Amino acid sequence: MTSNLVPLIKKAKAGDESAMEVLYESFKPLLVSNAADSSKKFNQDCYQELSLQFILAVQAFDLEKYLGE
């Protein structure tokens, strides 16, 4: 995973699709692991919803609050 996500988040929030893709690919293993049910069966619908929520979370993330600015 990228060590400093702040520059990527700034770019992604500004509409840089490649930055969002890098962020998404960095967190994809986490999304995949959380899209499995208790029997470890992959749930595609859950994965799609997690992916959407990830993108929305990046867009809504308050960098100023996080950085204490």
Rank of each mutant, 00 (worst) to 15 (best):
K65A: 15
L23K: 07
Q59W: 06
D37W: 09
A35C: 04
K65Y: 01
L31P: 00
Y24D: 07
E49P: 05
D37P: 01
M20E: 11
E64K: 13
S39P: 01
Y66F: 15
I9V: 15
M20A: 11
E21K: 15
L30A: 00
N43L: 15
L56I: 12
L30G: 00
A36Y: 09
N4W: 06
C46L: 15
L67E: 06
E21N: 14
M20V: 06
K65E: 09
Q59C: 07
F42P: 00
N34R: 08
V6E: 10
F42G: 00
E17V: 12
S33L: 11
L23R: 04
G15N: 09
Y66P: 01
N4F: 09
F42W: 00
V6T: 14
Q59H: 13
V58R: 03
V6Q: 05
L56Y: 07
E17R: 13
N4L: 11
M20K: 12
L56E: 11
E17Q: 15
A35Y: 02
Q44A: 14
V6K: 08
Y47H: 03
F27P: 00
F42V: 03
L8T: 04
L52Y: 12
A19N: 07
L56W: 04
L52E: 09
P29Y: 04
D16S: 10
T2F: 13
K11G: 06
S51C: 13
S18V: 07
A14N: 13
L8W: 14
L67V: 01
M1S: 04
D62C: 02
L23D: 00
A14Q: 15
T2C: 08
N34W: 07
T2K: 12
F61S: 06
K10C: 08
L8I: 07
K65P: 01
A60Y: 07
E69M: 08
K41M: 13
T2P: 06
